[in-house]
Write a protein that binds this DNA or RNA. Structure first.
Length: 386
DNA sequence: CGATTTTGACCCGCGC
DNA sequence: GCGCGGGTCAAAATCG
């Protein structure tokens, strides 16, 4: 039934490499950190910014600051590419406050399970409203999982939340990934008593990406296991699972109702393995940094300790598939991406364009931390603009 | 031929 | 209890 509508969308093949802007948004939050050298402009700029630097990132400073409460401590304006990046900051900052997710997004995410322990603070903070600055700017909001409380108004995903304990899982919880996974699968079949136990979901992160492409290449390999029509939306939602052995990380991709040009990618769980491919994503960022556990290594960022705890730290790199083939950023063309993510930075909105150089960024997670979810899109998104 | 995608069916929780 | 909607399974189809 629904499929039909859906079908039209996926396929990367069709995606053109033209312009994609990625806005990253995050939704459920967890603070992830991204790294790398970009410039951060304190002013919020609209979506297509016109900045020309390679990595211009604009944040809504205010929101950002608010989140972190940094105002007093950090001078964002001073950040520049040379600096370690905002991630540095992030690392030292207090956790962000949750933001409210745009209605369209909310449907899905919000339900937060119960989580793990996320940031207490956040939890308390509760809802923030973010103002979607611009439609596209999408600020996304995120809420933390835990924070569900806040959000839980939406029940849309009710089941979601309830399900599985994976939550802790991937990294967190106690069960091994495989176990979880299996359980996951088996859930249906086994269901008897299990029902009672509600499953909790793992922490999720959502990113908003403004792009023509539905699928971003974040360095991991994903297998699509389902697609559903989204209520009130012509665009379907696709479900992907990481193909890594034992890795139960899931990803959900759909277009925003509010702005079809925005792709909402929600990650759930942590990867239990390092990023596979260099091939595809060989752009380099990643890696190594594992050792740095918290902190940023030059390239990467790691979530602040407090944030770190759970596994939330993940690293991502996003690239649109189509772009994958393009040799890195080096390609001098202009690329542009705008991402906003709420997880870590709730109302942040930034754009990047034209990277000329490979970003050095790598997000680090403790390696495979399950997380490794964070996109590095920042880094590499190379999108050729026109 | 193995991996991935497609897609209808099914499961499950929730509200009415 | 029923219908709705989200999420997942799994067989078939497709891809590389």
């Amino acid at each position: 039934m629904e499929k039909k509508d859906l079908s039209s969308h996926h396929h990367s093949s069709n995606y053109q490499q033209h312009q994609h802007q990625h806005l990253l948004k995050a939704d459920d939050y967890y603070p992830t950190v991204m790294s790398s050298g970009f410039e951060i402009h304190t002013g919020f700029t609209g979506g297509d910014g016109s900045s020309s630097s390679l990595f211009d990132v604009s944040f809504d400073q205010k929101g950002f600051m608010d989140l972190f409460n940094l105002e007093d401590h950090y001078d964002f304006t001073s950040l520049s590419s040379s600096s370690s990046s905002l991630f540095d900051l992030v690392c030292h900052l207090p956790p962000p406050t949750p933001i409210e997710v745009p209605s369209s997004l909310r449907q899905q995410h919000h339900h937060h399970p119960a989580p793990v322990d996320p940031l207490p603070m956040l939890a308390e903070l509760s809802p923030l409203v973010n103002n979607p600055a611009t439609p596209s700017s999408s600020s996304l909001s995120c809420t933390s999982n835990e924070h569900n409380r806040v959000a839980h108004n939406n029940k849309a995903m009710g089941d979601d939340q309830d399900q599985d304990h994976e939550g802790q899982g991937c990294g967190g919880g106690g069960r091994s990934v495989t176990e979880e996974e299996e359980e996951d699968k088996g859930i249906k079949q086994l269901k008897p008593s299990q029902k009672k136990q509600k499953r909790q979901r793992e922490p999720r992160f959502a990113f908003l990406t403004k792009t023509d492409v539905d699928q971003l290449d974040d360095g991991y390999r994903w297998r699509k296991y389902g697609q559903k029509a989204v209520k009130n939306s012509p665009h379907p939602r696709s479900y992907y699972r990481c193909t890594g052995a034992g890795c139960g990380v899931k990803k959900r991709v759909e277009r925003s109702l509010d702005d079809p040009s925005l792709v909402v990618t929600t990650y759930e769980g942590r990867h239990s393995h390092p990023i596979p491919l260099m091939p595809r994503s060989s752009y380099g960022f990643f890696p190594e940094s594992s050792s740095a556990s918290h902190g940023i290594s030059r390239a990467g960022l790691v979530p602040p300790p407090h944030l770190h705890h759970q596994n939330h730290s993940q690293s991502f790199l996003f690239r649109s598939p189509s772009l994958s083939r393009y040799p890195s950023a080096s390609a001098g063309g202009q690329f542009r991406t705008a991402t906003s993510f709420s997880s870590a930075f709730p109302s942040i909105y930034h754009q990047t364009k034209g990277f000329d150089s490979p970003l050095k960024a790598s997000l680090v997670s403790d390696h495979g931390l399950p997380g490794d979810i964070m996109p590095s899109f920042l880094q590499k998104e190379l999108i050729k603009e026109e």
